[in-house]
């Protein structure tokens, strides 16, 4: 089980801030494919990966990152701090 978190408009499009996902995905990209196949709202949220960023166990990374031993994956738009 992996905790999957969504922030900002990704959270709004999917309709929840976090969920537990049972997955055999090996990479973040595989997980995205699984999520997109679930329902239209997921498909829509992940339709343009260039507009998304991903963190694995709270570290910013890429979509080809491995999920081996990972507890938490977060998807969000580019950050706007400061």
């Amino acid at each position: 089980m992996i905790d999957v978190l969504y922030f900002a408009w990704v959270r709004e499009r999917i309709g929840l801030p976090r969920e537990q996902v049972k997955t055999t995905a090996k990479t973040v990209a595989d997980l995205v494919v699984e999520l997109r196949s679930r329902e239209e709202r997921y498909d829509l949220a992940f339709s343009d990966l260039s507009a998304l960023r991903v963190a694995v166990d709270q570290k910013l990374t890429d979509f080809d990152a491995s999920l081996s031993g990972v507890r938490e994956v977060a998807f969000f738009p580019p950050m706007t701090g400061g």
Partner: peptide, 9 residues
């Protein structure tokens, strides 16, 4: 911190 700290406005 503009683009690498996880804040969204």
């Amino acid at each position: 911190l503009k683009s690498r700290a996880p804040f969204w406005k």
